[in-house]
Design a binder for these strands. Structure first.
Length: 527
RNA sequence: GCGCCCAUCGUCUAUCGGAUAGGACACAAGGUUUUCAUCCUUGUAAGCGGGGUUCGACUCCCCGUGGGCGCGCCA
């Protein structure tokens, strides 16, 4: 069977890097196996799902090049099918209706964790179990499960309970006298009878557990006495996530579910749902979380954890993709910067780690710098132009020859596209000046004279790099300065900053008019 | 409270019982350079603690500790 995986976000708010990393891993796995990568929009939460969130989600997916192999499936369009599945479970006795508290209207539909598990291969017996219960609270037993109170460390009753299946062969004791034996009352309970036992102090049962092999976390087990029956259709008639999720994974014929490990606990119940619905269960792989610089999980409140933010901050999609792929995964050798083809070839779920990874923006920035410096110059220009959209100033035009030259000169120095905001001096004669640095340079013996001499020499200069260098040398000689001593003063006088590309190249790119204007302006102000 | 999961330099990671625990980012020092960036050298820096198993443990097991997740008619 060919591999089919999916990314199934819910369109509430912006897409989080943790989510998109899950998408990346799914995508890589699908490509690695020659399988299909699908997209499913889980928009069943009508109150929180918005069209804006949907389009921002699509933007992020497009931007990162995570194209799906089939049209996206909107979960809300499958509502009837979900309800049909619930109806089927109801008819088969694998689900029941919870009575509505107010007594009006049909109650929520609840999936019953199956009591008979002989035919369910992923459930195994884990041996007999005993639990002390608090005698002040009754132990109740019905087809909907059992409830009781555990004894806290301080001797207080703590409410607890589980599905009926969690307590196979349940016996309830008071002072070692058996008050109730589930085996004797099974028929009545199936008919709807409920029991309440007072003053019990101990229960015993056969513990069973759900077991599955997670591709990244290994063998995972969960005792059924830690599981409750789960609502699959709300009393308002809407299907719940668990039902919709399982139905749609079956509908889309998903073979592998790769998702965040916050879903591990759901998996035990989803496995049961797949089984009850008659579907083969997919293979599961749970990805470790990505945490923020404080080592805490990213919450919706972390303003810098959205995919769009990284784009706005000037990161390129390939660099972010590459960086995110390295969070919780590595190819096994020392490779870090990889092409997509390499990542696809090397990606296996077995190499995914199971410990949480912390996001390091500095390392991302470094990777981004590498991507930017290797980028085709036209593409670099286009991106810089876009990054400048939010800037108060803009170069004349994206395809402007001068703008392209500036980009070419500065490309290797850019960490992120938005670093271009500091290139203002190329475009605006009134760009800000680092006054302290300027004063410091001009205070040096002979510098002012040299700059005046330079201004005169530049009148005769053809503005090639060689000629500019020669002019600077000549001005130094005329003012009695050592070789190279005029470079920094000239840079500040012309660009207003102490840093940038080589000053000869910079002046050559800027050209006579801009350089002379800026230089004369500086000299006038410092008479 | 109960259940499940996780644990190597500050950070991301390599190591699938066997040599001085390797790489990258960051940081520090030095060199190159026309400032900055680059580039080159070098350096600081790690197996959470305690028990086992073993000739040998970062690696396997147990107990602690710390962290995360889950325990909804949210997804």
């Amino acid at each position: 069977m060919s591999v089919r995986v999916r990314f199934a976000p819910s369109p509430t708010g912006h897409v989080h890097i943790g989510n998109i990393r899950a998408a990346i891993f799914n995508w890589l796995f699908a490509r690695h196996c020659g399988g299909k990568f699908l997209l499913r929009i889980e928009d069943t939460d009508r109150e929180r799902s918005t069209p804006e969130a949907c389009s921002s989600l699509m933007d992020a997916i497009d931007w990162l090049g995570l194209a799906a192999d089939e049209p996206p499936l909107y979960q809300s369009s499958r509502r009837d099918s979900h309800l049909l599945a619930a109806e089927k479970l109801l008819q088969q006795g694998q689900a029941y209706r919870k009575p509505e508290a107010a007594g009006n209207g049909p109650g929520a539909v609840v999936f019953r964790i199956p009591y008979e598990t002989d035919r369910i291969p992923f459930i195994r017996e884990a041996g007999p179990a005993e639990l002390n219960v608090h005698p002040d609270e009754p132990v109740t037993v019905s087809a909907e499960g059992i409830t009781f109170a555990q004894v806290s460390r301080k001797g207080k009753p703590m409410p607890a309970g589980c599905c009926l299946a969690g307590a196979k062969n349940l016996k309830i004791f008071a002072a070692d006298i058996c008050l109730f034996d589930l085996a004797e009352h099974m028929a009545e309970i199936t008919q709807g009878a409920a029991f309440s036992l007072e003053k019990a102090d101990k229960i015993s049962f056969l513990r069973r557990e759900v077991v599955f092999e997670d591709t990244v976390k290994g063998l995972l087990a969960k005792p059924l006495d830690g599981v409750k029956d789960l609502v699959i259709v709300r009393s308002d008639g809407n299907p719940v996530f668990h039902l919709a999720n399982v139905c749609d994974d079956a509908f889309q014929q998903i073979t592998h579910i790769i998702r965040g490990d916050d879903h591990v606990e759901n998996t035990f119940r989803h496995l049961l749902l797949f089984n009850a619905l008659g579907f083969a269960a997919p293979v599961y792989a749970h990805l470790p979380m990505i945490v923020n610089a404080a080592g805490k999980p990213y919450s919706k409140r972390d303003g810098d954890a959205y995919v769009g933010d990284f784009r706005n901050r000037g990161f390129c999609a390939d660099a972010l993709f590459n960086y995110l792929s390295l969070l919780g995964w590595s190819p096994g050798d020392d490779r870090e910067k990889m092409t997509r083809a390499e990542m696809i070839e090397l990606f296996t779920q077995e190499r995914v780690k199971s410990a949480a990874a912390q996001m390091d923006v500095k390392k991302l920035t470094h990777l981004n710098w590498m991507y930017l410096s290797e980028m085709e110059s036209g593409e670099f220009c286009r991106n810089v132009w876009q990054a400048l959209a939010g800037c108060p100033w803009r170069p004349p035009a994206e395809d402007d020859d001068y703008f392209r030259k500036v980009c070419g000169l500065m490309q290797s120095r850019a960490n992120v596209f938005s670093d271009a905001a500091e290139w203002l001096y190329f475009f605006d004669e009134n760009a800000p000046v680092d006054q302290a640095a300027l004063d410091k340079q001009l205070a040096r013996q002979g510098v002012k004279e040299a700059l005046h001499a330079l201004a005169r020499l530049l009148d005769e200069c053809n503005f090639s790099e060689e000629a500019l260098a020669a002019a600077l040398r000549a001005a130094e000689v005329a003012a009695g300065l050592g070789e190279g001593k005029l470079n920094q003063p000239a840079r500040i006088a012309v660009t207003g900053t102490t840093r940038g590309a080589g000053i000869y190249e910079t002046m050559a790119v800027m050209g006579r008019e801009r350089v002379m204007q800026r230089l004369r302006h500086t000299l006038e102000l410092t008479q």
